[in-house]
Amino acid sequence: MGNVYFWIIYAVVIGSAIIALEATSLLWAAVSFVVLLSEIALVYFGLNMPVLGGVQLAIYAGGVTILVLFAIMMIGESYKKPEGKAVKAIVLSLLLLILGTFFSFLSAIDTLPFKTFSTEVLGTVFVEKYSFFTIVLGFIVSALLYMANAIITKKREAK
């Protein structure tokens, strides 16, 4: 089992996740969401993956959160107490958690020692093996931009 730092991080991650969902004010929820994502970045740093942690911080805590904040400013949210459905959701998610944990203990998965990969290795493998997929991501981005442009212009014209 993990050391005390792990469990502290566990508590912060899950706690901030729950707060992000349950907080009454949307702004606090967003802040909590940023905390969650940064904590996950912290886990990456803790695993000696500074690049991944940096990317996580940059894209999530930077990009996505700003998008979300932007949306919040446009939309706003009047918080209403959720009704009825919460019981089903709690039961299902708890079942998922219990089953997953149970299975992971039943499983023959082995704990290997943690390794550290240097940034050079990472960069080399990325460039030599995986560079093709950046092109693919580029296509996704271009298609999304075109469609978003079409839809936003349509919206403007619809007014």
Binding site: K85, K88, A89, L92, S93, L95, L96, L99, F103
Partner: peptide, 20 residues
């Protein structure tokens, strides 16, 4: 849509239980 999502997760859990 929330019902659909619920069915989705319930379906996954049922499948897992079936395997068990």
């Amino acid at each position: 849509v929330i019902d659909y999502l619920t069915y989705f997760v319930a379906g996954v859990i049922t499948l897992v239980l079936l395997i068990l």
